[in-house]
């Protein structure tokens, strides 16, 4: 097994284990840690987590594919997640999506980000960018380069 949790993460895992009635509850927390550590979730990481929390690898794999925020492959491009749900759509998400076309980024269409009052919205990594317009998008992308 070539995936090993960092010392810091191992410590967090030990602490978290005391906070739940079963180590199985650490499934999502461990997946997050693995994804942060490696940038994606590898099969090796799944095996390591399986040993750590007592859920079979296949079940964890099923979990990973259930949620939209986990990646099974390394992400090489900036992942621009544009909300395409109703409030954003009403407020111009189509224009944002069109504006992004052809740029050197991965464009993901995501569902409502819970930011409808400041539509249109996009998320890059863990950060929300709200009340977008094409110029603002350009500035944001420039600042992230």
């Amino acid at each position: 097994m070539s995936f090993v949790f960092s010392k810091e993460n191992l410590l967090r895992i030990e602490t978290l284990k005391k906070r739940y009635p079963s180590p199985k509850a650490l499934c999502l927390p461990c997946l997050w840690m693995a994804q942060h550590q490696e940038g994606y979730i590898s099969i090796d990481a799944i095996d390591t987590i399986s040993e750590e929390i007592g859920i079979a690898p296949m079940e964890i794999y099923g979990v990973v594919t259930f949620y939209t925020m986990f990646h099974l492959e390394p992400q090489d491009k900036l992942n621009v997640q544009v909300c395409k749900t109703l409030s954003c759509k009403l407020c111009g998400s189509d224009e944002i999506l069109k504006h992004l076309e052809g740029k050197d980024v991965k464009i993901s269409h995501v569902e409502c980000l819970g930011s409808c009052g400041t539509a249109p919205v996009m998320q890059i990594d863990d950060v929300y960018y709200e009340e977008l317009n094409p110029e603002k998008v350009d500035e944001i992308l420039k600042s992230l380069r």
């Binding site: 099969i43 799944i46 079979a56 690898p57 296949m58 079940e59 794999y61 099923g62 594919t65 259930f66």
Partner: peptide, 20 residues
């Protein structure tokens, strides 16, 4: 535990772990 369901909605399907 070799088999499981992956994906969700109408994209859900039965599978094994990749390579297993």
């Amino acid at each position: 535990h070799e088999l499981g369901i992956i994906g969700r909605g109408d994209d859900a399907r039965v599978s094994t772990m990749p390579g297993r």
